[in-house]
Amino acid sequence: MEQPPRPGFATRRRTQLFDALVDLFLVEGFAHLTLDEIANRLRCSKSTLYTLAGSKEQLVRAATVHFFRRATEDVESRIEPIGGARERITAYLSAVGNALAAASDQFMADLDAFPPAREVYERNTQFAAGRVQELITEGVAAGDFRDVHAAFAADLAATMMVRIQQRGVRDSTGLDDAHAYAELAAILTGGISA
């Protein structure tokens, strides 16, 4: 007699599949891959993929959501133990840059060309800008930063984050994403320090 799956097994398996899917997409992109190729690469069946999403387009969007959820958890865990507003913003932006550093140019091009995935990226960039605004506001309240307009500073950061995401910074400066985020952190925190 077959044993029923252990509680949490299905969730763990889904997470493993999404992790593998994200890793595949980050390296190779996704536009050129068929569902058959994805299933072969993940060593699963197409029917297994259909338990994750109803179509390739939905699968790409769900994988993009998974990537950003995983990245957000990682970024937040990195700044949690850090004290000091300047250090927290620097750690936050550096962690965002590191999370995006795993993305190949092909993945970024595919993401930009596919509106449902691009929308997920843009929403997460706006979330990150909001988080930077929170960190700036905390720093102003603590006296670490001069009294700046936190929403403006966050909007400035968001504008650069979008340019980094769209590879504009790389094209014009040669900086990879991780270094671009480090420079953004240095300029932003230096400009608002008390």
Rank of each mutant, 00 (worst) to 15 (best):
E2I: 00
E73Q: 12
R78T: 05
A117V: 04
Q106P: 02
Q3S: 06
L49Q: 01
I89C: 02
L93W: 03
R13S: 05
T15Q: 12
E37A: 15
T11M: 06
R131F: 04
R78G: 01
Q126K: 06
I89F: 09
L33M: 09
T15M: 09
H179D: 13
V22M: 12
L35G: 10
A91S: 12
T64H: 08
Y181G: 01
F145D: 02
V140M: 11
A95V: 00
A157K: 03
R43Q: 14
D155Y: 09
R118Y: 13
M1V: 09
A102M: 11
D144V: 00
D144S: 09
A142N: 08
E57A: 15
D177R: 15
E2F: 00
G143C: 03
S77K: 09
I136A: 03
S172C: 04
F114E: 06
D112P: 00
G143L: 10
D144G: 01
I164F: 13
V169F: 10
D110G: 05
S47H: 02
V162Y: 03
R123K: 11
Q58G: 14
A53G: 02
R163G: 07
Y92Q: 05
N124P: 04
G190V: 09
L21Q: 04
T137H: 14
I38W: 03
T11Q: 11
T72I: 06
Y181L: 11
T125P: 00
T159D: 02
T64M: 14
T15V: 12
P7L: 01
T11K: 13
R41M: 13
A154V: 00
N40Y: 11
A129D: 03
A63Q: 05
A95T: 04
L26F: 10
E37I: 04
E80N: 09
A63T: 09
T137R: 15
D144K: 01
V22I: 13
P116V: 07
Q58S: 12
Y121F: 15
P81H: 09
V60S: 06
R131C: 04
A185P: 03
A102K: 15
F18C: 01
G191Y: 05
E183M: 11
G8N: 06
E122H: 02
T90V: 13
R12G: 07
V60D: 08
V120C: 01
Y92N: 03
A85L: 08
A39M: 14
P81E: 03
V162N: 00
D110L: 08
G190R: 13
E57W: 09
E76Y: 05
T125E: 04
R78C: 03
A194I: 08
V96I: 15
L156Y: 12
A178R: 15
V22Q: 10
R13Y: 04
G8L: 03
F18R: 07
D147T: 08
M108F: 02
D36N: 11
G83F: 08
Q133L: 01
F68M: 14
